[in-house]
Design a protein around this nucleic acid. Sequence first.
DNA 1: GTCTGCGGGGATA
DNA 2: TATCCCCGCAGAC
Length: 440
Amino acid sequence: MSEGHATPEWDINDAVVPRVTHFDTFGEWCDGHVRRVYPPGCEEARRHASGWAMRNTNNHNVHILKKSCLGVLVCSTRCRLPDGSRVHLRPAICDKARKKQQGKPCPNRLCNGGRLEVQPCRGHCGYPVTHFWRHTEHAIFFQAKGSHDHPKPEAKGASEVRRTLGAGRRVRGLALLLAREAAIADKILNVKPDKQMPQKTNIHLQPPPLIPDSQRGLTCTCGPFECTCRWRPETNEAFTSSTWTQSEHQPYNSYVTPSVSAPPPAQSYDPSTLPADDIFHPEEIFQLDQPIRLDFPMEENTLESPPTFADLNSENSRPEDSYWFEWQRAAGGSESSETSSPELFSNGYQQMEYCEQQPYPHQQFYPDEAQYYQIDNTRESPVEMEDQRFYRYSQDCSQGNVEMHGWNYTDCAFTQHNAQECKQYYEAQHAQSVNAFSLL
DNA sequence: GTCTGCGGGGATA
DNA sequence: TATCCCCGCAGAC
């Protein structure tokens, strides 16, 4: 293929992959059978990053890196969090560490006797979903096979930040908490500028103003195995697709939204106005081993939480739960809210299975009752939410993405035209979020 | 301590 | 033979 003309069809195993000049937006939560081409400077792609817990798998091909999904760490009792969602933590990539995770008590205070266990991924014909990475001089080719049949694990950043901060220790004061936040924010904004806003900017033109996964949980102070953060911004990106055709409309493009919408001037923390990508979910900050039963001021829409805050008196309580609940409840009243449980947007369980080899029954994440929780009365079904979200984002994505459509990579990638715009927007969003919480 | 890439090796179709 | 997975090692963080 000549340069500039992307081929609609290629396989990671092809002897020669096409040379392209137009690239896809990095997708952290690729699901379904997806092919993407990233620019060589894409930091996430170079790191073979993924929101899913992917472990290296030897395919005896030094030119193609293969990774397989480890699934998700769930509670053996499939208990529910106060907001109705489930526990789904990120399994450690390291076998040793992962073994240590298993059997740990469920972090959910509402859980009675549950233990963490790995729900393996069987989304690719009974095998784990696999990711393939292939580096060429001009691009990084990515191909995913299979659709995850399990919820998304917590973002990689959550566990990493926990380690970094030693968040397993008890945090007894809000001052200390905020100090940590400030330190983290400072670290993010100054020390590692290239690790900010993971895929939010999606700018590959100027190398790497991107945030790796490791920074996604920049405000998560969850204790070990206690992170129930469900703030993954990717929730707005993967709610369709598991087949080739569908994948072409995967809304990884969500991140492009701000490029055409006016940057919100709000300085207050309003989840409903923030792009899901940049939301500083409450539990990220208030996820503590020790309850903050203080009087820490919260945003107006989160102030009232009598029933849940009562739980803070429990030794094992986690205030972030109540905070999250309240926050989510408040956000639910907004039509523009994008704060639903990420599980609702995981796409694997309700999609057609693409399997080259044999049909494999696609299991639901939680077959007992799926994972539709009546958390939000304003939403009757995940489909409705998806539609809403898709409507909101698709418009944006349709712009400047003609070329992607042209060669079947319709993931809404940033264009050179609006990339900088988006970057600025997200940076502003990030700063606003930090400022909002600093006011606490 | 954990992540990541690499590579050996066994099992299976 | 191809493809799958498990496992261990080493370097990096």
